[in-house]
Nucleic acid binder design. Structure first.
Lengths: 203, 203, 203, 203
DNA sequence: GATGAATGAGGTTTCATTCAT
DNA sequence: TATGAATGAAACCTCATTCAT
C-alpha cells in the first residue's frame, strides 16, 4: 500500500512538473509556438515522457487549464463560508481570484487567451471547471438580486459576464503596468466592485 | 499620371482582396491554422502574390488589423460632429462600433483575440490605430470628467479600459447567443452605457 | 498551349523521378523502412516536394503500384492481337510479363509483397489495374475452357490464381538463383505452361 | 532437478504465452504495426518481460516462425510412416499442412508474408525449419521421380517450389473466400494434387 | 526474475517563404 | 508583376529498448 501510494505520488509529481513547464511555456510563447520538446526539456524529461501523462498537446493544454481552475474553484469555495451574504461571497471570489492571479501570472496569460481560443479554434472544449465557476458567480448574482442589492432589471448571466470582464480587465491593467509599482493586486478589489455596482457616473 | 494612379488603384484592389480573404480565414481558423496558401486561394491569387503586398504572415495580420481599425476610426471621427458633448460623442463611438462589428463579424473574432496575442506572442506590435482609438475615447472620458458627468475619482485611462471591456463583452455575448434571435447589435448601446455609468446596484 | 504542355510534361517528369526512387527504395527496404526523406533524397528533391505529387506515403506506394501495373496491362493488351486463340493470348501474357519483370526487378519485389500486405494491412486497397489484369486472364481461361483446351472441371477463377502463382514462383526462383546464370526470364515461358497445362505426372 | 525442470517449464510457459500473443498481433496488424507493448499486454506480461525471452522484436518474430514450423514439421514427420510411397507421403504432407493451417490461421497470414520479407527486408534470416521442410518435400519429389511417378524432366527443387506455391495459393483462396462456406480446408487436398500432377489440360 | 516508466531517435507531414519562369 | 512549384526546417507523436525498483 505504501509502495502503491508512493508510486502514485511520484506519478503526480511528474505530471505536476510537466504542467508547470507547460504553464510557463504556453504563457511565454502561446499554444502554437510552445513545443512539446521545449516543455519536456524545461521539465527535465524526455519528449516521450510527456505523452505518458497527456495523450497529446491539446490534452496537456486542457489539463493545465482544468487543473488551475480547479485549484481556484476549491479556494473560492473553501473561503465562501466566511461571508453570509451574496455580495460578501462575491467579494471573497474577487479577492481570492486576485490573490490567485497574482500568484499565477503565467496562468493568467493563458486564461486571457482562452476566450479567443474558444471562439476561433473550436476544437478546444469549454472547461467544465470554468463553467462551474461561472455558475457559482451567476448564482451569487441572482441571490443578490433577490436580496434587492442588485437591480432586477439585469439578466444575471449578462451581469456575470460583465463582472468577470471587469475583473479580468483590471487584472490585465495591473499586469501590464502597475505591477512594477509594487502595488498588490488584492488592493484593486474595491475598485472592481465600484465599477460593477455604481458605475462611474458622478453621483 | 492617370496610368500611374490606375496602377496604384489596381494595387490597392489586390491588397484589399487579400485582406478580405485573410480576414475570413484568420477568423475561421485562427492565426496559426490559416495558411498563406489558403488565403491566396480564397483571394484568387497565387501564393507568391501575397508576398508582393505583405512582407510576411505577421505583416498581413497586422495590416489587416490596422486597415480595419482605421476604417472604424474614420467612421467614428466622421460622425463625432453630430454631438457637442463628450458623452454624446461616446454614444456615437459605441453606436458606430456596434454597427461596425455587426457588419464585420469576422474581424470581431480577430479583434477579440488581439489582447491575448499582445500579451503572449510579443512579436506582435501594438496597433497604432488601436492606440489612436484608445486616445480618442480616453480624451472624451477626461472631458466628461471635466464636465462633471463622470466622477473625477477614476483614472480616465482605467475607465477607458473598463469601458472598452464592457463593450467587447456585450458584443461577444450577442455574438455567441443573441444574434440568432434577430436582435440588432446597435440596440445594446444603452445597456452598455448603463453598466458603465450607473452600475448594477439597486438605486 | 506549348507552355501548358511543357509544364505538364515537367510535372510528369518529377512525378516519374519520385516514383523511380520510391520503386528502388520500397524494393530495397520495404514499405515501412523506406522513408519519404530517403526517397526524396534519392530523387534529388526536397522532402516536401514528394507531397506535391502524392498526398501521403500510402498514396505514393499505391500510385507506384498502379502505374507499373497499368504499364504491364497496356503492353499485354497491345500485343494480344498477335494471337487469335485464348492459349496464344495467355502465352503472350506470360511472355510479356516475364519481359516486364526482368526489366522491372525492383517492382517485382514489391509485387511479391503485395499479397501479404493486402491480407494484413487492410488499409491498402486492391489495385484496380491488378483487378483488370486478373479479369483479363480469367476471361482467357474461360475461353480456353469453351474451346475445350482446358478442362471444364476447374473453376476458372481458381485456375487463374494458380496460374499466376506458378508464374510468380518461377520468376521468383529465377530472381533468387538463376539470373546469375545469365539465362533470360522469357525462356521460362514454356515451363510455366507445362506446369499449368500438363502437370508433372509421368505421362 | 525437479525444481529446475519446473522452473524451466514455467519459463517455456511464459515464452509460449508471448508467442501466442505475438502470433495474433503480427497476423492482425503486420510486423511493423504490432508493438511489443501490445503483445506484452495481450500476453498479460509487462513490456520488459518480453525481452527476457527474446532479445529483440526480430527475434520474437523469428522465434514464432520457427516454433510454428517446427510444430508442423514434427506432425508431418510423425505421420509419414502411414504411407510407404513418396506420393503417399506427399499427400500426408499436404493433408497435415491443411489441417495445420486451418487450425493456425493467424500463423498462415504471417507465413504468406514471409516470402516477401525474405526478399526485401534482408535482415530476416531464412528459417532453418522452413529449410528442413523444403528439403523433406524435395526429397520426396526426387523419390517420386525415381519411382517413375513424376517425370524426370523437371528439376525437383523447382517442382517443390511450384508445389508449395500451389498449396499456398489454394489455402489463401479458401482463406479469403471459401471458409465462410463451411468447407473444410482438408477437402482441398485432391485438387492441389490434380493441379500439380495433371495440370488443367483437357485430357 | 518481473515490472513498466522513461528514453530519445526517428518517422510523417505541414507550411512560410523563395525564386525561376 | 504574377505565378506556384520547390524548399527544408521543424512540429507532433510513436515505440523499441533499457534499467531502477
Amino acid at each position: 500500500m505504501t509502495t502503491l501510494s508512493r508510486k502514485e505520488r511520484d506519478r503526480q509529481l511528474r505530471r505536476s512538473d510537466i504542467l508547470k513547464a507547460a504553464e510557463h511555456l504556453f504563457a511565454l510563447k502561446g499554444y502554437h509556438n510552445a513545443t512539446i520538446r521545449d516543455i519536456a526539456k524545461e521539465a527535465q524529461y524526455a519528449t516521450g515522457t510527456v505523452y505518458l501523462h497527456f495523450k497529446d498537446k491539446d490534452a496537456l493544454y486542457f489539463g493545465l487549464f482544468e487543473e488551475k481552475l480547479k485549484s481556484l474553484l476549491s479556494i473560492v469555495e473553501g473561503k465562501a463560508g466566511q461571508s453570509e451574504d451574496s455580495i460578501g461571497k462575491l467579494r471573497i471570489f474577487v479577492q481570492e481570484s486576485l490573490v490567485f492571479f497574482e500568484k499565477n501570472q503565467d496562468f493568467f496569460k493563458i486564461f486571457i487567451a482562452e476566450e479567443a481560443r474558444l471562439l476561433i479554434e473550436t476544437r478546444f472544449l469549454k472547461s467544465p471547471t470554468g463553467q462551474q465557476l461561472h455558475e457559482y458567480t451567476t448564482k451569487l448574482i441572482k441571490q443578490a438580486q433577490e436580496e434587492h442589492i442588485i437591480s432586477r432589471d439585469f439578466d444575471p448571466k449578462q451581469v456575470n459576464t460583465v463582472f468577470v470582464a471587469i475583473l479580468k480587465t483590471i487584472v490585465l491593467e495591473w499586469f501590464k503596468e502597475e505591477k512594477v509599482q509594487g502595488k498588490s493586486l488584492v488592493d484593486l478589489s474595491d475598485i472592481i466592485f465600484r465599477y460593477l455596482l455604481n458605475g462611474i457616473s458622478n453621483k
